[in-house]
C-alpha cells in the first residue's frame, strides 16, 4: 500500500469524521478529542487496512470503537464517585453534561437521550448515509440487530421531536 494515497484519503475523510464524532459524542470538545485519537490510531494501524476495501468504513469502525472504550472508562469512573441510587442512572458522563446545558437545541437533546447503541445506528444511517449492511459491519452486529436498534432509536426521536420534526 502506498502511504501517500492512504494519507490523502484519510485527510479527505476528516470533515465527515468530524461530523460522525459530533454525532456520537454530542459535544465539540469530546468530538475533537475523539477525532484526534481516531486519526492517531488509524495512522498507527495503517498497515492493517486492506487496499480495495472502503477506507471510510474502516476508519468509522475505529472511531466507533474508540468512543465505546472512552464511554466505558467514563462510566466506570463515574460509578466510583456517584451515590448508589443515583448510580443507576449513570450512562455516559457526556450525556448528563449535555442535558445540563441550556443552549442545546431539541435535536441535540433528543439525540443525547438515546441509548448509545441506538444513537450510533441512527447517526450512521440517517446522517452518514451508510447502507444497513455497511452500518452493521461498522458496528460489528448482524443486520437484523442494526435495523431493530435503528427502529427503536427513530421511534424515540420522532416521539421527542414531534412527528413533524
Amino acid at each position: 500500500m502506498r502511504t501517500h494515497d492512504f494519507c490523502d484519503q484519510l485527510t479527505a475523510l476528516l470533515p465527515r469524521l468530524r461530523r460522525f464524532a459530533r454525532g456520537l459524542t454530542q459535544n465539540p470538545a469530546d468530538a475533537d478529542d475523539l477525532c484526534q485519537s481516531t486519526v492517531e490510531r488509524a495512522l498507527v494501524a495503517r498497515g492493517q487496512w486492506q487496499e480495495g476495501t472502503r477506507l471510510d468504513a474502516w476508519v468509522y469502525r475505529i472511531m466507533r470503537n474508540q468512543w465505546i472504550d472512552e464511554t466505558r472508562s467514563r462510566s466506570r469512573r463515574a460509578r466510583t464517585f456517584v451515590h448508589e441510587d443515583e448510580g443507576m442512572n449513570v450512562g455516559i458522563a457526556g450525556d448528563r453534561d449535555a442535558e445540563n446545558r441550556v443552549e442545546l437545541g431539541n435535536v441535540d437533546r433528543a439525540l443525547a437521550r438515546l441509548p448509545a447503541d441506538q444513537r450510533e445506528a441512527v447517526v450512521l444511517v440517517l446522517v452518514e448515509g451508510f447502507a444497513y449492511k455497511e452500518a452493521a459491519e461498522i458496528i460489528g452486529i448482524p443486520q437484523g440487530t442494526l435495523t431493530s436498534r435503528l427502529g427503536r432509536g427513530r421511534e424515540a426521536l420522532l416521539k421527542e421531536l414531534g412527528e413533524t420534526a
Binding site: P15, R18, A31, Q36, V107, L111, L126, V127, T164, A165
Partner: peptide, 26 residues
C-alpha cells in the same frame, strides 16, 4: 423530516475548517 432535522444539525460540522492539528498529524 427526521433525517432532514438530524442532517441540518450535524452537516454544518462537516463544513467547518478541519483543525490544523489533524491535517498536520497525517
Amino acid at each position: 423530516g427526521l433525517r432532514a432535522a438530524l442532517r441540518g444539525r450535524l452537516d454544518p460540522v462537516a463544513q467547518e475548517p478541519v483543525p490544523l492539528a489533524l491535517t498536520d498529524l497525517i
